[in-house]
Simulated scan of single mutants.
Amino acid sequence: MINISEEQVNNALDFSTLVPALKQAFTTDICVPSRLHYDMENPKASRETTLLMMPAWQAGDVAGVKLVTVAPDNGLKNLPSIQGTYLLFDINNGSIKAMMDAPALTAKRTAAASALASQFLSREDSKSLLIVGTGTLAPQLIAAHTNVRPINQVYVWGRTLAKAQAVCEQVSELNIECIPVDDIQSYAKQVDIISCATLSTTPLIFGHWLQPGQHVDMVGAYRPDMREMDDACLVGNKIFVDNFDGALRETGDIAIPLKTGIISKKDIKADLFSLCKGEYQVNRKASDITIFKSVGHALEDLIAAKLVANNTLK
Rank of each mutant, 00 (worst) to 15 (best):
V171H: 04
K23Y: 06
P103D: 04
S195L: 04
N78C: 04
M229R: 04
E177I: 06
K285E: 08
A166I: 06
K265Y: 14
M100I: 03
D73V: 07
V68M: 11
F89Y: 14
G261R: 00
S118K: 06
G133V: 12
P103H: 01
L67K: 04
H208I: 10
Y280E: 07
S126Q: 05
R227C: 08
S46G: 11
D90V: 09
E177R: 02
P224T: 10
A304Q: 04
K306F: 04
G84H: 02
L13S: 07
G236C: 15
G60P: 06
H215F: 05
F26P: 03
A164C: 13
A305I: 05
H215G: 02
Q165K: 13
V148L: 09
D182H: 10
P224I: 07
G135P: 12
I96R: 05
K127C: 06
L141T: 09
A63D: 04
F240T: 03
E124N: 11
K293T: 03
G133N: 12
F244H: 14
V191N: 01
L141S: 07
V62W: 11
F89G: 07
E173D: 15
V191H: 03
C233M: 10
D225N: 12
S186T: 12
V308S: 00
L67H: 10
T85Q: 01
P224Q: 12
D225I: 03
M53V: 15
I254S: 05
Y38E: 12
A247T: 12
R35F: 03
D101C: 02
K266R: 14
N78Y: 04
V132I: 15
N311D: 01
Q190T: 13
A305F: 05
I289N: 01
K77C: 08
I179H: 11
P103R: 03
M53Y: 09
A111V: 03
T17S: 15
D245M: 08
L313I: 15
D183Y: 01
L88W: 05
M99T: 10
R149H: 09
A221Y: 07
H215M: 02
A197H: 11
A298T: 03
N243Y: 08
Q170R: 10
I179D: 06
T201D: 09
Q83I: 08
E228I: 03
L248K: 15
P224G: 11
P203A: 15
D39R: 15
